[in-house]
Design a protein around this nucleic acid. Structure first.
Lengths: 239, 239
DNA sequence: CCTTTTATAGTCAGCACGACTATAAAAGGG
DNA sequence: CCCTTTTATAGTCGTGCTGACTATAAAAGG
């Protein structure tokens, strides 16, 4: 950290990029914005923007999240720093270092373009052609991270309404992981983890669909899962 | 990523900071540099420096690692991006965004100050008073990350000589985690993980100390551990 | 030669998990 | 009104990993 005289070069721009996931109609969706200008005009891109001089990256990411989703209260949502992408040339216009964040939101409101008037929308994961810049890689890294976080944290409850059934919780896992899970085993595992979920006392039950009504649960006080809820081993998943 | 006209502010400096661990005489050491100038003159700090205009953060970190350790070949060493620290005010002189990296090296050569002539040295982990800037936090985050990586990757072999005994490998775990492990169980677990280690064919054995000579092993071809080698649960370890 | 030290082999019980079967409680269709 | 379908919940069984522990082997040192 000595040698500040070295710093006689063009400055770097510092931005945040957000990979925000949600579940809609049982499928995984990502919040994307459509670029109106070159480069990559017409391509989808991750929402993001510059870190302002008096902001931390986390603050900037939370501000961008509020702008793009239209949510009034993003203070309680879990935003996780993913990693920083700094390859020279990742933006053809100038040297941009981007700090990427990942988030998993409950039932998401309709997206509406942020302050920069770009069109924002929820897009099913995997269906939006090649993204702008290196955002395909960032999105893939974020998906992997969110899937891994489901294994050993209570993140899944952050993607459910305040009261939910174990079937809904299981759908979060199945949708993000892209695999089916055995329902009795999932139930046994979740209920055996103290603090993961707690039953709603009023014997409340949800009806409306077919089949036996399911009991309702709330998120518990635990934040981590011991032991973890591992996804079924699949060939070729990176470390 | 639109709205480049917003960028009408003072630029950010982008640096890398390195938390480099090694084992010396059975204890965990960290590579630190002593600051000669204000702020924090006389304090220890993590080695690091500016990212140059044509470098990625990884490249800059590798360059700094070579400079500070004096190692001629750092291309094969595992450098892991930890996270990015961007709080305003973390450096009183200017706005600095720092991308932190963590590494675990085998038997380390003597440190010699890098190009900026700061004194560099290997310091036992936990004994270097408060570090400069927010480097105490970065170092703690790095220690936690390295400990977690030992659980589900083959990182520990990166901290051993090319041929090592299972006792030496176990010492890596015990030293980084700060806990004692049962030797027969550790042995059973390591040998049961395909690709973690492979025996040196020549029936080679290491002698010199007391006791029965131990068989020598080399690092295998695997990179991840399934299932993981979990550290004994301890109260109050963060997620 | 006996003790100490370290490496290696083996045993045993508990428990977590995958796979599976069984029962309960609703809706829908004849 | 019965019968099928659908979903939730309960329980069983065997396997494999793990922690705790005991036993044996092979060296060094006195």
């Amino acid at each position: 950290m000595d040698g500040y005289d070295k710093y006689a070069h063009e400055p770097f721009a510092v931005t945040v990029d957000l990979a925000v996931f949600t579940l809609r109609q049982g499928t995984l969706h990502v919040l994307l914005v459509e670029r109106g200008q070159e480069p990559y005009a017409g391509h989808w891109a991750l929402p993001g923007g510059f870190v302002l001089p008096d902001e931390s990256a986390e603050t900037a990411a939370r501000r961008e999240l509020a702008e793009e989703t239209g949510l009034s209260d993003v203070s309680g949502l879990h935003l996780e720093q993913l990693r920083t992408y700094s390859e020279p040339g990742r933006d053809p216009r100038m040297r941009v270092v981007s700090i990427a964040f990942a988030a998993l939101l409950p039932d998401a409101p309709e997206a509406h373009g942020g302050s920069d008037a770009a069109r924002a929308d929820w897009v099913p994961y995997g269906t939006a052609g090649p993204l702008a810049f290196d955002h395909d890689r960032i999105l893939a890294d974020a998906h992997e991270r969110v899937g891994a976080k489901l294994e050993y944290t209570c993140l899944a409850t952050a993607c459910c309404p305040p009261e939910f059934t174990l079937g809904e919780l299981q759908q979060v896992y199945e949708t993000v992981w892209g695999t089916a899970l055995d329902r009795p085993n999932f139930r046994r595992k979740v209920l055996a983890t103290p603090g993961f979920v707690e039953p709603v006392p009023g014997a409340a039950r949800l009806t409306g669909g077919r089949g036996k009504p399911a009991a309702l649960y709330r998120a518990g006080t635990a934040t981590t899962l011991h032991p973890p809820l591992l996804r079924p081993p699949r060939e070729g998943r990176p470390a």
